[in-house]
Design a protein around this nucleic acid. Structure first.
Length: 115
DNA sequence: AGCTTGACTTTGA
DNA sequence: GTCAAAGCCAAGC
């Protein structure tokens, strides 16, 4: 909570903190995370953070997709289909690299932040 | 030091 | 509805 409000911390740590807060079976978008951090336009940086997130294993990166609900980062996983399988395991149906009813599974980090 | 790239989003046509 | 272009900031070359 308080750590999320502190922008003095590294952008990466902020991103990881939020991604870890994503509930089981829920997903969110890069832009939503960026917005929760106060930098709505630097959604690309969230993607960069996720790239480095590979070193952190407690990061459910499969719960983060782009705004279209498309699994854009699937190829960055150990296996391209790993992301889709993980999501299906959590009850999130995926078809053609895209989340079905994305708006229903969408979780807004702003809610958790209380904003 | 500058230039390019990127797990993106928004806006305008 | 789709497509193209701009904006964003950090890391890598």
């Amino acid at each position: 909570m308080s750590s999320l409000n502190e922008r003095h911390k590294d952008f990466f740590e902020n991103v990881y903190a939020i991604v870890r807060l994503i509930p089981h079976g829920k997903v969110t978008s890069y832009g939503a995370i960026a917005k929760a951090l106060g930098t709505a336009k630097s959604s690309r940086m969230v993607g960069w953070a996720m790239n480095a997130a590979h070193t952190h294993k407690d990061i459910p990166a499969h719960r983060v997709v782009n705004r279209n609900g498309l699994l854009t980062g699937k190829m960055h996983f150990s296996h391209p289909n790993k992301m889709e399988e993980l999501l299906k395991t959590e009850g999130v149906l995926v078809n053609d690299d895209k989340i079905i009813d994305f708006h229903l599974h969408f979780w807004d980090p702003m809610i958790e932040l209380g904003n």
